[in-house]
Design a binder for these strands. Structure first.
Length: 178
DNA sequence: GATAAGATGTTA
DNA sequence: AACATCTTATCA
């Protein structure tokens, strides 16, 4: 399988969010590799009030201002991690939240942004790592191109709630909500 | 230094 | 519908 190159991420965030559907998230744990097909994403751009980078560079959001092609992992609600891919060029402050996977190899619970992090052991340790090489402990490979992508309102936010920036594969049973 | 709220998931 | 439970951002 082909690892998605840096150039894949240096594009419009909404396009990356759509194109990530059908791609395969890979996570190395010791010598084992877990895989899951991305079936649900959300796009966050710097000009979006719901985006962590909306108010500029902070200790948490700083990795979003790096060049695309790295991970952004944050901790929320005192117990949950969420995994994002940074997009666009340096200083753009954009990212795509991975909300759900369809697990391969194993029967894992990966329908939801925090459940997939738990299932794949994604923690703060993976914040800011290069995801464009399979020498890292996490990366994304090219998958198939879904022909039935739907857009909808994002979940769990207040500001910018009306933006249609959630994308998922219509009918896939691993998508987080109905 | 203190405090309020949060891109959630589980349990009741 | 409540709760678990802690980081980040904001304000003093």
């Amino acid at each position: 399988m082909t690892v998605l190159k840096k150039s894949f991420y240096l594009k419009d965030t909404l396009d990356v969010a759509r194109e990530l559907l059908g791609c395969v998230l890979c996570r190395r744990i010791n010598d084992e590799i877990l895989r899951g097909v991305i079936v649900e994403t959300e796009a966050y751009t710097q000009d979006d009030p719901a985006c962590h980078a909306y108010k500029g560079i902070t200790e948490r959001s700083k990795v979003m201002f790096e060049d695309g092609g790295i991970s952004y992992v944050y901790f929320i609600y005192g117990m949950h991690y969420c995994f994002n891919t940074v997009t666009e060029k340096k200083n753009q402050g954009c990212a795509v939240l991975i909300r759900a996977l369809e697990p391969l190899d194993k029967s894992l619970k990966t329908n939801g942004p925090s459940r997939l992090c738990k299932a794949f052991s994604i923690t703060k340790e993976l914040n800011g790592v290069d995801i464009t090489t399979n020498k890292s402990d996490i990366w994304i490979e090219k998958g198939f191109k879904p022909d039935n992508i739907t857009s909808a309102k994002r979940i769990g936010i207040k500001e910018g709630a009306d933006y249609m920036r959630r994308f998922y594969i219509e009918g896939n049973k691993w998508v987080s909500k109905k």
